[in-house]
């Protein structure tokens, strides 16, 4: 198996605030990779780098052998046709119904006849279990359903890579399980590669092949779910078990408590 995504020594900063400081990450074809870390550690930035929406300050991002950060706009657009992305809250187009949302890329990028598009869309919707919801508007969907429609939209053109930005955020336990299973099943049946950015440890450890932990802009730890569960690294332990204090402190950096309260002054 070869590597579909290769990220080498990538750094990125918003203005003068560094977000990523030398990240290395690879994803092999056919795998589900989880990128975990606490909120605001630059996971989403990583996905935007892979999608070519932003360019790294240094290092290279390679997808299918092409260096994303050096592509010309047209080449980048043709590469993006082979990528799908699931945004945090689905990002469905609110002025189109479910069917049109899934059909969007087919209409934009292909000249398929209308009846072929219809069949393809219904197949994608069937794969996520929402064929019956084709005529609903996004405002009529629940959070979990919107996420599944967005997933159907992301796989509409049979991409080789699908990225998920917090697919589990704000879902009830049932939707959570449904979404997790869908990611695994679609990856296996369609031969995709999936990159899941999440902070939901329990759900993602069940479905992924490999896990990267990002903290403070670097890869803190990596390994298979079994290795991660057994890991004794303090950060991973704190994260997996959801402890309040540890390497990631509970308190925001401050002056000593006593002196701040002016006790004994």
């Amino acid at each position: 198996m070869d590597n579909l995504v290769e990220i080498e020594n990538v750094s990125f900063s918003y203005g003068d605030r560094p977000v990523l400081k030398g990240i290395n990450l690879t994803a092999r074809r056919g795998q589900v990779i989880a990128i975990m870390g606490n909120s605001g550690c630059g996971k989403t930035t990583l996905l935007r780098l892979i999608g070519g929406q932003i360019k790294p300050d240094q290092g290279t991002v390679k997808v299918a052998g092409q260096v994303v950060n050096e592509l010309k706009p047209l080449d980048l657009y043709s590469l993006r046709r082979k990528m799908g992305m699931l945004f945090q809250f689905g990002a469905l187009f609110t002025d189109m119904n479910v069917f049109e949302n899934v059909a969007f890329q087919m209409r934009e990028h292909t000249k398929l006849p209308e009846d072929v598009i219809r069949d393809l869309v219904l197949m994608k919707l069937h794969a996520v279990g929402l064929r019956g919801a084709a005529d609903l508007m996004p405002s009529e969907l629940s959070g979990g359903m919107a996420r599944r429609v967005a997933l159907a939209r992301a796989i509409a053109l049979e991409p080789m890579l699908v990225m998920y930005d917090e697919p589990f955020a704000g879902l009830d336990p049932i939707s959570l399980g449904v979404t997790g299973n869908l990611i695994r099943r679609l990856t296996d049946t369609l031969g995709l590669t999936s990159l899941v950015v999440t902070h939901d440890v329990q759900e993602s450890l069940k479905i992924v092949d490999y896990v990267y932990f990002v903290s403070e802009g670097i890869i803190e730890a990596e390994g298979t779910p079994a290795e991660i569960s057994a890991s004794n690294l303090p950060f991973v332990h704190q994260f997996v078990h959801g402890e309040a204090d540890g390497p990631v402190p509970f308190h925001y950096p401050a002056k000593p408590y006593e002196s701040d309260l002016r006790l004994g002054a």
Partner: peptide, 25 residues
């Protein structure tokens, strides 16, 4: 309001990721 909301709900970013130029579309 419509464009602002499309941006806030990442619809424009989603369009860009689907290789569709939001300025043109």
């Amino acid at each position: 309001a419509e464009i602002g909301l499309m941006k806030a709900t990442e619809q424009l970013a989603a369009m860009e990721m689907m290789a569709v130029d939001p300025v043109a579309r």
